[in-house]
Amino acid sequence: MAESFTLRVCFRKTGRLRHLSHLEVARACERAARRAALPYAVSAGFTPRMRIAFGPALPVGTAGEREYLDLVLTRFLPPAEACAALASVTVEELSPVACAYVSGKERSLAAALTIAEYDVHLEGGISHEGLERRIHAFVRTGTLSVEHKGKQKVYDLAEALPKEPLVVSCEDRVLIRMAVRMSERGSLRPDVFVAAALGPEVHVAVTRTDLLIEDQGVWRRPL
């Protein structure tokens, strides 16, 4: 087998482009890799495809500041050079943040990333007053039952929320900062959690600020 190099790219999906779906982001990233003329590897078979893999999907409408993809290259390119090449062919709202090589033996992003941190901005001048108390009281109710596509899903909040959510005032806006543990069975959506805790009339804008690997109780970035 020919030598290959796995380039891990941290990228952002922000601004207007937070309205893109995961599939739309994936396709756009593949096209960016081609525009950047990166020496990408192609799978064998009847319909050869670029060897690229993504971290956990972001829902339509949710922004991401540190999202990840792994791209297999057929020759070594200095990471800074790869990052600059990608930056020159992408729009700011969907562009690389950092690049580095990882071992080809590393677990896939989808399996390795189990912690997601979010900022949930509350819209419409909601006051900080009493918010934290309401949220913590809701967490202490123990479970949250969510209906998704006709199926009922029950989240154990102590398990799904590894840290107590924080309420932060930022300029004249209030946001809830929270971490969510992701699992193969699905992960709690922060907008769903906030709607359940504060009522469905609260409008939110969600940003996933970080994706982390949990290694023997310690959280670290994948790059």
Binding site: R16, H19, L20, R31
Partner: peptide
């Protein structure tokens, strides 16, 4: 937030 496929309306394509 209320419509299908918002990517139709957001511009900022390459």
């Amino acid at each position: 937030a209320r419509v299908e496929r918002p990517a139709r309306y957001i511009d900022r394509e390459w």
